[in-house]
């Protein structure tokens, strides 16, 4: 595999392979000196056309833990402001000699375009509303660590699925690993069509709450209100927010996940984020291990130990 562009390109075995690799990297991170020189001499560029804190830092940390050299390019502080096109920017960076490019862009398919333009490996770090494959892998990794197995888990993804790349990648990753996914939220935030998707859809969170093993909460943005998708965030929270009351009605061992950034009180209660069901901190921590595994898999020069 040369690029990681979409979970859609990964079959179950490939996902499991990357999760197993992440397990190894997680062990490395637990060592006294949490580094391996596996990518020494390699150069990895982060090309971020959209604001991101955790994904960019997570990739850069992963690259450094593997001994790679890193460069960062963010749209706000560069030639993009001067009007340079994505194609020209990418070609310019490539000519500096790079092995992998980590691309975050607000337009769906931008990393796929980049992959056609350059020889280096391209990793999708989030493209518009399309996909965010490393987020899906780190979520699966996090759940697998906690439960032992993802197969058979009932996962409810709650919120703005229509506009969520995390959901698009997650749905495919979870279902390929044998989980059952239900999308939950107001019809205005559900995908317009789900033909052929391995999901069920409901707008009644309370009805399904007690059946779920995992509640995966998505961020809901204020800007949806201006576009007539929601009357108000208060009304949203009342029907679809993961409140303390709702959390209490979950199965005893049910877990709560969120890809961040969170708006506490807007989609999820503070007490639930910080409570015992929450995997939110594990998700962030595991992000580094999973991205190490992906980088190693794509540009490493040998089998993983």
């Amino acid at each position: 595999m040369k690029h990681l562009l979409s979970v859609e390109d990964l079959d179950r075995d490939r996902i499991v392979e990357l999760l197993d690799g992440s397990e190894y990297m997680s062990d490395v991170l637990g060592r006294e000196i949490p580094k391996v020189p596996a990518l020494r001499g390699k150069t990895i560029v982060s090309l971020f056309y959209e604001d991101s804190t955790r994904t960019r830092l997570s990739f850069e940390t992963a690259a450094k833990r593997l001994g790679a050299d890193t460069m960062t390019f963010t749209a706000g502080s560069s030639s993009v402001k001067k009007g340079e096109s994505l194609l020209d920017t990418v070609k310019t960076i490539e000519s500096m000699g790079i092995d992998a490019m980590v691309v975050r862009h607000s337009a769906a398919g931008a990393p796929h375009r980049v992959a056609r333009w350059i020889d280096a490996s391209v990793i999708n770090a989030g493209d518009g509303r399309h996909e965010h494959p490393t987020q899906a892998l780190l979520d699966a990794f996090t759940l697998r660590r906690r439960r032992g197995d993802v197969t058979g888990a009932r996962i409810g993804i709650v919120g703005d699925v229509r506009n969520s790349r995390v959901a698009r990648s997650g749905i495919q990753c979870w279902s390929r690993l044998g989980a059952q996914v239900t999308l939950i939220g107001p019809p205005t935030l559900m995908p317009e069509r789900v033909d052929g998707w391995p999901v069920e859809v409901t707008s009644d969170l309370d009805d399904i709450l007690s059946e779920l093993d995992v509640v995966y909460v998505l961020r809901v943005q204020q800007e949806r209100i201006g576009r007539a998708l929601l009357p108000s965030l208060r009304e949203y929270y009342a029907r679809w927010g993961l409140s303390v009351d709702r959390a209490e009605r979950l199965k005893p061992d049910a877990l709560v996940m969120h890809p961040g950034p969170m708006i506490r009180g807007s989609e999820i209660a503070t007490e639930v984020v910080d409570g015992p069901r929450s995997l939110v901190r594990d998700q962030v921590a595991n992000g580094v291990a999973v991205r190490m595994a992906v980088l190693w898999d794509l540009i490493g020069s040998g089998g993983m130990a």
């Binding site: 769906a108 398919g109 493209d127 518009g128 509303r129 399309h130 996909e131 229509r162 506009n163 790349r165 698009r168 995908p191 317009e192 069509r193 789900v194 033909d195 052929g196 998707w197």
Partner: peptide, 15 residues
């Protein structure tokens, strides 16, 4: 076009 493909690709649709 807003439909099955726009939903899959995450590209906002024109219905």
């Amino acid at each position: 076009h807003e439909g099955e493909w726009s939903a899959r690709l995450g590209i906002p649709g024109r219905p």
